[in-house]
Design a protein around this nucleic acid. Sequence first.
RNA 1: GGUCCAGUAGCUCAGUUGGAUAGAGCAACAGCCUUCUAAGCUGUGGGUCCCAGGUUCGAAUCCUGGCUGGAUCACCA
Length: 596
Amino acid sequence: MDLILNLTESIETILKNIYNSDIDKKAISIQKTRIEFEGDFTLVVFPFLKISRKSPEITANEIGNELIKVSYIENFNVIKGFLNITISHKYWIDFLYQSLQNNTFGFTDDPGEKKQVMIEFSSPNTNKPLHLGHIRNNLLGFSIAKILEANGHHVTKVNLVNDRGIHICKSMLAWKKWGKGVTPDKAAKKGDKLVGDYYVLFDKEYKKEVELLINKGISEDKAKVEVPILLEAQDMLRKWEAGDEDIVKLWKTMNNWVYEGFDVTYKNLGIDFDKIYYESETYKKGKSLVLDGLEKKILKKKDDNSVWADLTAHGYDEKILLRSDGTSVYMTQDIGTAFERYKDKKFDKHLYVVGNEQNYHFQVLKLILKKLGYDWYDKLEHVSYGMVELPGGKMKSREGTVVDADDLIDHMKTTAKEMSKELGKLDEVSENEAEVIINRIALGALKYFILKVDPNKNMLFNPDESIDFNGNTGPFIQYTYARIKSLLRKASDKNIVSSAFPKNDIKLAKKEKDLVRLIYEYPAIIKEAGTEYSPAIIANYVYEFAKLYNQFYHDYPVLKEEDQDKMIFRIRLTEMTGRIIESALELLGIGVPERM
RNA sequence: GGUCCAGUAGCUCAGUUGGAUAGAGCAACAGCCUUCUAAGCUGUGGGUCCCAGGUUCGAAUCCUGGCUGGAUCACCA
């Protein structure tokens, strides 16, 4: 039975007995005792004053005198209106041993809680390589998926590749014009990078042509839409939609180059998907659903043949769903994709991990699906997150102010390698092992840096001050783990069997108790991270945990402790700490090194 | 202009279901390696929690108004 729940019930009963009056359970607020006071948990007694009709101090003492009769409560003290409760050492020790028995401590496996969850993340365009913004998206999506699994759900990770549209035609056209048949192999370049280069080339040429037209006296607005190269790209898109063989062939070839490039990046990042949806395969479904809606008069057609959803009654604007030439827009394919996915999985929940710039889009998507009569519309949820900004502001691919995902990962690896060498950390391990460790550290630093920030908030990335390896960082936590592993290896060399229990009662030091209390919190942390869709909650928890363990490690001997019972307890505490660090980092998609 | 999000130390961020003297890391300075890994530990300095009202025994947290920054309201995705 959960300790806090138990405490709450005891307090409820006590209040009833001594004051003869019921109190709302919500008024019983139990929190962690602040570090500077004696005790484990604190009850705030102010809400009870109106039934006790006594001063805060007296009320707290009266409750404390009853509470101390409960077996696992050892002591209490009162400071102003705060009743600090001390849980017995024996309770905490027993708790540690119980949690050691449980291999998935902190995870939920209640079948009643299990839901089918689909989670979409990454959602790249096929005209340019992945950048730092995608990294935040990918890491968040992947971690949230893991957290939801830890909460007992069945999770399907899906990607939506935006593989059709004018943007890919731009790359294709530029490649046709200036590529001279180059391929990723010939250029010795990742496919996504190569295609991205031609996208940039298109943009350069486009700007040049716009300027030419303006110089000829054409207005800027007009010039922008009448540029020959743009018209050519649009023509290409029409041909693609009409199924022109050559165009489709080129489209397939170039997209495949990009996918191969993406796969490398995904693999380096350590993320994967269960299923990939392609916009080119779902937009037609969206189109037909829109036409259905039109037939049922849910949607309306304007004079120019464009199709619209009128959302003004709901406080939104009108939203276009089919252009006047009958082609579909972003929203159209999202309607189709959602429909296909519901057909595939009958999900209880569908999460879209997409940046906050699309908050409006997803509100409108839900509303349109509702209007179209799909009662599962409210199973869709937008997991919105803030942008990654550079010191100069937003990243813009066209202005070259993007931080490329591959470059960043490489840079992290180089830095990790240099630092390991400098510190002489990996002199004694094989080259292969060293590389595995360095990769883990590099990615650990990057992932933790990004995931520790509350997803709601924009975050700043300064490329000049590269990501740290000291302090509140991934490597700090990984280092704590490596130390723990080293210590446990030594314990096992000494034949101190890990399943041992102390024979006699021991008294716990403050930091030992604090560590156990943090272990106790882990299940609640996983739950909270699951309901909030926030890996940051896990990240901040595991940091606090590692920090406290390092203090303990510094202050107390473990293997050199002379009291056998204390030594055994400390080894077991160390073991559990290692397990929680490993488990928590795993939820963030971060691997742990056995040594570093 | 409407809507949404954010504003906490020089910088990057925690803390927000109202609770005690607002916390970390980085940066600066000063210490700790003949003891289980110094990518560690300890200490010093650093705050108008954007502002003004309000609710409350109690507000960084809730309410109202304002200020600042970002996003969005496209026949772009």
